[in-house]
């Protein structure tokens, strides 16, 4: 586990001082019930932050708000120096290209090979046909995509269709695609949720190791208590649209944490 970092710490790979992410009074309502009701927190470079909460507590909505896949009702979001809520279309695309996202469902294109799917990650930096199809990509891009697959241990499956891979392997391909993006922050929405316990732990360990190796901030929405304790430096708990707990993992009380999960995970 990483040692928790203080505000202002600068890690290798990051030139930023102070929080890389700051959320202030974030409110999100879908017309009816208010999902997020004044959420505020910060995240610092190189820290692994777990967001926990029961189903419907607004974890996924929070993540979508961070990259404006859904527009917040009010509040402020500052990430990597961007005032996210006020970004116009083109600037929003440039901002998103700096944020890697790993989804609960891997969201790969099933008919394509692992290499093609990983190569799609380069679309955060390049546009045009050379970033659309692996047969049209430059040698350098193909080599980088293969290297990303090697980092997740799947370079030998590069040309296999992803729908022929296991769930854990598909999630690893999704992580390789995220690496291809060269992100500065990683957001992960329950990346272990649809996997068996062993595959889930492998994926979480891989994600945590990669973030640590590259000095990246990792924000994980987590639904497994053991993974939360094992792979995070700090834990925030969402309940009733508010952050009701913010604690360093080393000081976290598992009994109190368990209240944020819908059912026992051990």
């Amino acid at each position: 586990m990483n040692a928790p970092l203080d505000a202002g710490t600068t890690l290798a790979g990051s030139t930023l001082v102070g929080p890389v992410l700051r959320v202030s009074d974030l409110v999100k309502s879908y017309g009816g019930p208010t999902i997020l009701n004044g959420v505020s927190f910060e995240a610092y470079a190189g820290v692994s932050l777990a967001v926990i909460g029961a189903n419907g507590s607004g974890k996924s909505t929070l993540l979508k708000c961070l990259i404006r896949l859904t527009d917040p009702t009010s509040g402020r979001i500052e990430i990597l120096g961007h005032e996210v809520i006020s970004l116009a279309s083109r600037a929003l695309r440039r901002f998103r290209s700096r944020i890697g996202v790993v989804w609960q469902k891997h969201n790969l294109v099933p008919r394509l090979s692992a290499l093609s799917n990983v190569l799609h990650g380069v679309q955060s930096r390049l546009s045009g046909p050379r970033s659309w199809w692996q047969w049209a990509a430059t040698d350098a891009v193909r080599a980088e995509a293969l290297a990303c697959l090697a980092r997740v241990g799947l370079d030998d499956k590069a040309l296999q269709r992803v729908d022929s891979l296991s769930g854990g392997q598909q999630q690893r391909v999704a992580i390789a695609r995220m690496l291809m993006q060269r992100p500065e922050i990683i957001l992960a929405d329950e990346p272990d949720a649809s996997l068996d316990p062993q595959s889930g732990e492998d994926v979480m360990r891989l994600l945590s190791d990669l973030a640590r190796q590259d000095g990246l901030t990792l924000i994980v929405i987590s639904h497994r208590l053991e993974h939360t304790l094992q792979f995070s430096d700090r834990i925030i708990g969402l309940a009733g649209g508010l952050i009701t707990m913010d604690v360093a993992t080393q000081q976290a009380d598992p009994i109190k944490l368990r209240r944020f999960f819908d059912k026992p995970t051990e």
Partner: peptide, 24 residues
């Protein structure tokens, strides 16, 4: 899902169409 994943990383509309929509 694949379209949203590419949109989330800042892919262009054409990139999403050619990479995620057409293959599907």
């Amino acid at each position: 899902g694949p379209q949203d994943a590419l949109r989330a990383i800042g892919a262009s509309r054409m990139g999403i169409i050619f990479s995620a929509v057409f293959p599907a």
